[in-house]
Write a protein that binds this DNA or RNA. Structure first.
Lengths: 128, 128
DNA sequence: CTAAGTGTACCATGCAGCATAGTACACTGT
DNA sequence: ACAGTGTACTATGCTGCATGGTACACTTAG
């Protein structure tokens, strides 16, 4: 389903959250589709069920999935996902910081922006 | 000298590192200028000397500052800072992820890119 | 030379977050 | 009834971070 990076600074449950989020937003997991159960996914990616549940809980809190007790977890209607203002503000801050990192490394502003545009263009293509 | 955010996910020594890095790369701290001593800075921002030292050690490792034992710590010649290939690769990955976060939040690609350009433009202005 | 200030290196402690293991319970569908 | 589902809880160990404290070598100012 997706890959985990144990060396990453991100915790496992965050990686699971982000990976699923990407699969949902890109439509690979369609609205209404059933996600693997907590126990099943935990076996697949060999992590603890609690860790998977933590990811699911977070995704539900953010509105990406919904749960029917005793039945399973399903992908929500992403067209209904309102853009969370606070989350957007955090994302802006993170983006600004990521961009500044180029400058800290010694790149000129123009070089940094050129790299930034490259990366975004590549993302546009790969997400189609 | 700068502000710390205790609520941040970033550790304190990382914040100190990044803040100093910014002051150096923007020229606010000039090449050759003496940095506050470990003990002095630790008092100023009320953190443990060990934490400040950790930041200084990291900055020295990355070439932003240099040390003369018994004398002090000084800002290196930033024109000599070579762009670390590994660091650049990490920065690219971080940037890509920050940008994708916009998409995950439900923004269209065009909206996301528009916001990205806004942020970069603002950065260009504030860094001059 | 002496004292103060500097970087540097340790060690011990406490804390928080994360991941794990295990158990238990309520719910649903077959 | 049973299997599968989500959910909750406790306990444990690990890691990184921050702190407090001590110690040593070095340099500069007096």
């Amino acid at each position: 389903m997706f890959q985990l990076d144990l060396k990453s600074r991100k915790s496992i449950y965050e990686q699971v959250t982000d990976n699923l989020k990407e699969l949902i937003m890109t439509g690979i997991l369609a609205s209404g589709e059933k996600l693997p159960s907590v126990r099943e996914l935990s076996k697949t990616i060999t992590v603890n069920p609690n860790t998977v549940q933590k990811a699911y809980r977070e995704l539900e809190r953010q509105g990406y999935i919904y749960t029917t007790s005793g039945v399973g977890t399903f992908v929500a209607d992403i067209s209904q996902i309102r853009v969370d203002a606070h989350a957007l503000e955090r994302a802006r801050a993170a983006f600004d910081e990521a961009f500044r990192e180029f400058l800290f490394l010694g790149l000129s502003f123009d070089d940094a922006q050129r790299i930034a545009l490259e990366i975004m263009e590549q993302r546009r293509l790969s997400d189609d």
